[in-house]
């Protein structure tokens, strides 16, 4: 159980860093005169804060009650979510690549890479939350 608490502290720290990165990212993009990228970053940041806060609060509460952070079901959920997020990430990166020519002006390749990584991380989170509440995880088709 102590290991679970350490893992939770780690997840919380990484989440705070991701949110701060999104905030700095949005601020710098606004300062550079961009509009689409910072608005998307702020919307994603707000969603991540709301969903992440609820998720972490439940996890801390369960850890206090002596329940594990991960069990065999959540392990299966994570495997399904990771494989689905992998496919979705390919589409996401293709859309980013297409949109970067048409609609989004990235400052430099590093900013585009950052957007890609944050998008992939958020996709994994969304798929995890989706499949975690889905009944009968064993019947998900690939």
């Amino acid at each position: 159980m102590e290991n679970d608490k350490i893992k939770l502290y780690g997840i919380t720290t990484v989440s705070i860093l991701v949110i701060l990165t999104l905030a700095i990212y949005a601020f710098v993009a606004f300062r550079d005169g961009q509009t689409v990228v910072p608005i998307v970053a702020i919307v994603l940041g707000v969603i991540a804060v709301v969903v992440g806060f609820k998720y972490l609060r439940n996890q801390y509460s369960d850890a206090e009650k002596g329940m594990p952070l991960i069990d065999e079901r959540t392990n299966k959920v994570f495997l399904v979510a990771a494989s689905k997020a992998y496919i979705a990430s390919i589409w996401f990166l293709l859309i980013i690549a297409w949109a970067s020519n048409e609609y989004i002006q990235f400052r430099d390749p590093a900013q585009a890479l950052g957007a890609g990584i944050i998008g992939m991380a958020l996709l994994l989170g969304v798929f995890y939350l989706w499949y975690n509440q889905k009944e009968d995880i064993g019947k998900v088709k690939f």
Partner: peptide, 13 residues
């Protein structure tokens, strides 16, 4: 859930 060492949702499902 505590006795078995799993999360409560697992027992629910």
């Amino acid at each position: 859930a505590r006795k078995v060492g799993v999360r409560r949702e697992t027992i629910v499902f």
